[in-house]
């Protein structure tokens, strides 16, 4: 395992933000740490990138303990943080050349590498502008490029697309996708289920400083069972009557007073039977939707987080 995390504990004052988090990331794979705000994702990444010391447990990157051999760990990792770690009063090119020289590429090597990366993250035209004039998406791309000056064995991406517009997000996903194809091991944190679903081989769901669930996106989805039917009604009494009429099929109240949910095999026959029964009982249905469980549902079911927190 390239990243090995064992029972990490971290307290801030009397608040326990990590309460025994363990997971592992095999080389060449992408792991998403998924969780709501305050779940402990960023703290975990800060410990793994030697910025914060854990109060308990241990973590190793390629066998090097993050507390005992921080310099060895730092040589193997790169961190692209939630708040772009770029120097705003320097140009994009100066930022990259500075990192290159700090990493011993030499003046010429650093210059060449900076030019390559500027092209790669599509900042060639803005290379000689001060970073303070960059948009949020450009800063994030520069931040990613700075993490790639010396290709890291493990790349940490802490909420790489939080606060980005859809176009920038999609550009970022493409860039990360390319890295993964090149074999970079990535540990990313995200609150976006779509992001985890799209980029990650495995998902570790954390909530309240603990691992709530772990598996491939498909495994997590399958935990919630198969497809479901969502029925909408014109008023509350109709919805309640429908739940009673379909109780034997496992119907339950939906997210609001006007809907009902029941498991389905996804077939047309089941749908017809349900609608017939409601018709016979004289209950009007305004709308029927078939839904496959998404990672959102897993997230909500396992963390109990309100929808407003998941954006």
């Amino acid at each position: 395992m390239l990243v090995d995390v064992d029972a990490l504990v971290k307290n801030y004052g009397s608040r326990r933000v990590l309460d025994g988090v363990s997971f592992a990331v095999p080389a060449g794979s992408v792991l998403a740490l998924l969780g709501p705000n305050g779940a402990g994702k960023t703290t975990t990444v800060r410990i793994l990138s030697t910025l914060t010391r854990p109060d308990g447990g241990s973590a190793r990157i390629a066998g090097h303990d993050v507390v005992r051999s921080p310099m060895a760990v730092r040589g193997l990792i790169s961190l692209t943080g939630q708040f772009a770690a770029v120097d705003e009063r320097q140009t994009g090119r100066e930022n990259l050349e500075m990192i290159g020289r700090l990493r011993r590429l030499g003046r010429v090597g650093a210059r060449r590498r900076a030019a390559e990366l500027l092209d790669r993250v599509d900042l060639g035209a803005a290379a000689d502008r001060f970073v303070e004039t960059y948009s949020g998406g450009m800063r994030r791309r520069l931040d990613l490029a700075m993490s790639l000056v010396v290709p890291p064995a493990v790349l940490f991406l802490d909420e790489p697309t939080t606060g980005l517009d859809p176009v920038s997000r999609s550009t970022m996903w493409t860039a990360v996708g390319e890295l993964v194809r090149d074999g970079t091991t990535v540990l990313l944190t995200t609150q976006y289920l779509e992001e985890a679903d799209r980029l990650a081989d495995r998902v570790v769901l954390i909530d309240g400083g603990r691992v709530a669930a772990e598996g491939t996106p498909e495994e997590l989805k399958s935990r919630l069972g198969g497809e479901r039917l969502l029925l909408a009604f014109p008023d509350g009494p109709a919805a309640s009557a429908a739940v009673r009429a379909l109780a034997a099929d496992g119907a339950a109240c939906g997210a609001d007073a006007l809907t009902a949910v029941l498991p389905s095999d996804g077939g047309a026959e089941h749908l017809r039977r349900v609608l017939d029964r409601l018709h016979v009982a004289g209950i009007p249905v305004t709308r029927v939707t078939a839904s496959r469980p998404s990672l959102d549902d897993v997230f909500l079911a396992l963390t109990g987080a309100g929808t407003q927190e998941t954006v």
Binding site: G81, A84, L102
Partner: peptide, 13 residues
């Protein structure tokens, strides 16, 4: 107060 410090601290510097 900026992110640059974290970048430097996570590098072998």
């Amino acid at each position: 107060g900026r992110g640059m410090v974290d970048r430097l601290r996570s590098m072998p510097v």
